[in-house]
Amino acid sequence: MPTINRIEDLQAWQKARWLSSNIHQTTRDKLFQDDLDLKRQIRRSGGSVMDNIAEGFGRGNRGEFIQFLGIARGSLTEVKSQLYRSLDNQYLTKLIFDDLYSQADEVGRIIDKLLLYLNNSTNKGRRYSKGTDGDNVEP
């Protein structure tokens, strides 16, 4: 497998970015204007998923990357809970809820596969490599 050198090439980050963007678009709906706290929180949680993937990747070592992927996974679960709150409060249709929830599930599966790979890898990460620019992460 090829080494990933840029966060933009990491599928987990790409999909988390897509989810965050779709949450942001969806919460522009006037129905969310009555619950600004929920609107802000679901946007923050959605952004936190991609941001924690990026931060962990940028740390340059496997242990911290694993730690930040765990935080991203927690934020993703928070997004799912907030999607239920949005559905229960009728801010989302069932169709939109199902679509966003499915996207969140996909991000979760990708994060889980990446965690499995990293937990089984002997590569410590870029910080411990001599003379390389790469983060030594395979997709």
Rank of each mutant, 00 (worst) to 15 (best):
R109E: 15
D98P: 12
G74I: 15
P139A: 09
T3V: 14
D37T: 15
V137W: 01
R17N: 13
Q14R: 14
R40D: 07
F32C: 03
R127F: 14
Y84S: 12
Q11P: 13
F97Y: 15
L83V: 14
S102N: 10
V79A: 03
P139Q: 05
L36V: 12
S45K: 07
K15H: 09
T93F: 11
S75A: 10
R85E: 11
E106H: 07
L114I: 13
E106W: 03
L118H: 05
T27G: 08
R40K: 15
E55N: 02
T132H: 07
N22D: 13
N61G: 09
A16N: 00
R17T: 12
P2A: 02
G63L: 09
L87C: 06
R126M: 10
I71Y: 07
V79L: 00
R127Q: 07
G63W: 08
L95T: 15
E8T: 05
A12T: 12
R62I: 13
K39V: 09
Q33W: 12
V107E: 01
T122N: 06
R126L: 14
G63H: 14
L69A: 06
Q82G: 03
T132R: 07
I110Q: 05
T132K: 09
I23R: 06
M50E: 11
D34E: 11
L100S: 01
S20W: 12
S48L: 01
L95E: 14
F57Q: 00
K30S: 08
H24C: 14
G58P: 04
D9T: 05
L36M: 08
I96E: 08
R73G: 12
W13I: 01
L118M: 05
M50V: 12
L87R: 04
K130Q: 07
N89K: 10
G74E: 01
R44D: 04
L69K: 03
L76C: 09
D35T: 14
K80C: 12
M50F: 06
L83A: 10
D34G: 14
S102Q: 06
L38M: 06
R59V: 08
Q90H: 13
K30Q: 07
K124E: 05
A104Y: 04
N61Y: 13
T132I: 15
Q103W: 05
Q103N: 11
G56C: 01
I7S: 01
T26R: 04
Q67W: 11
Q82N: 04
D34S: 12
G58Q: 04
F32R: 02
L114W: 05
V137D: 00
L83S: 05
Y84W: 15
G134M: 03
G47P: 08
F65I: 06
A54G: 00
R44M: 13
K39W: 04
N89P: 07
L114K: 10
